Simulated assay, not measured.
Amino acid sequence: MTLGMAWVRNLGSIRELVVASDSRLSGGKFWDSNPKIMLLPRSDAVLSFAGDTHDAYPLMLQVYNAILMHGPALDRSMDLAHLKGHLVRVINKARSSVTNLPRGERGPVIADATFMLSGYSWRQKRFRVWTLHYHKGAEEFTFRPTQPWRGQSGHTKEIAFVGDERVVKAAKSVLVDRLRAKGKLTDGGLDMEPLEVLRDLLRSQDYTEIGGAPQVVKIYEHMNVHPFPVHWPDASGGLTVLGRPLMPYETFDSEAIDPDAL
Rank of each mutant, 00 (worst) to 15 (best):
M1I: 09
M1F: 03
M5K: 04
M5L: 15
W7S: 01
L11E: 15
G12P: 02
S13P: 07
I14Q: 11
I14C: 06
E16I: 08
A20K: 00
S21E: 06
S21R: 00
L25H: 06
L25D: 07
K29S: 14
K29C: 09
W31Y: 11
I37S: 04
I37T: 05
M38S: 10
S43T: 15
V46W: 03
V46T: 03
D52Q: 13
T53F: 10
T53Y: 06
D55P: 00
A56H: 03
A56D: 05
P58C: 11
P58T: 11
L59D: 02
M60H: 03
M60Y: 03
M60S: 05
M60R: 01
L61I: 13
L61C: 10
L61Q: 14
N65K: 11
H70W: 10
G71P: 08
P72A: 06
A73T: 06
D75C: 10
S77T: 15
D79Q: 07
L80K: 00
K84Q: 08
G85T: 14
V88P: 05
V90N: 10
I91W: 05
N92A: 09
A94C: 12
S97K: 09
V98Q: 06
V98C: 02
L101V: 12
G104R: 01
E105S: 07
R106S: 14
R106W: 03
P108Q: 02
A111Q: 07
A113I: 12
T114G: 01
F115Q: 01
M116H: 03
Y120C: 00
W122G: 06
R123Y: 07
V129Y: 03
W130C: 00
T131V: 15
H135K: 09
E139S: 15
E140H: 06
E140D: 10
F143S: 15
R144P: 00
R144W: 04
P145S: 04
P148S: 07
W149K: 06
W149S: 12
R150M: 10
G151E: 09
H155S: 13
I159H: 00
V162C: 06
V167M: 04
V168L: 09
A170E: 09
A171Q: 01
K172W: 06
S173N: 12
V176T: 11
V176Y: 01
R180M: 12
A181D: 14
D187W: 02
G188T: 13
G189C: 14
L190C: 10
M192Q: 10
P194G: 10
E196W: 12
V197R: 08
V197Y: 06
L201T: 03
L202I: 11
D206S: 15
Y207C: 13
Y207K: 06
T208L: 13
E209A: 15
E209S: 13
I210S: 08
G212S: 07
A213N: 04
Q215Y: 05
V216A: 01
V216M: 00
I219R: 01
E221Q: 14
E221P: 01
N224G: 13
H231C: 09
H231M: 04
P233W: 08
D234W: 07
D234L: 07
D234R: 02
T240L: 05
V241Y: 01
P245L: 07
P248S: 11
P248R: 05
Y249K: 05
Y249V: 14
T251H: 09
D253G: 15
D258T: 04
D260Y: 08
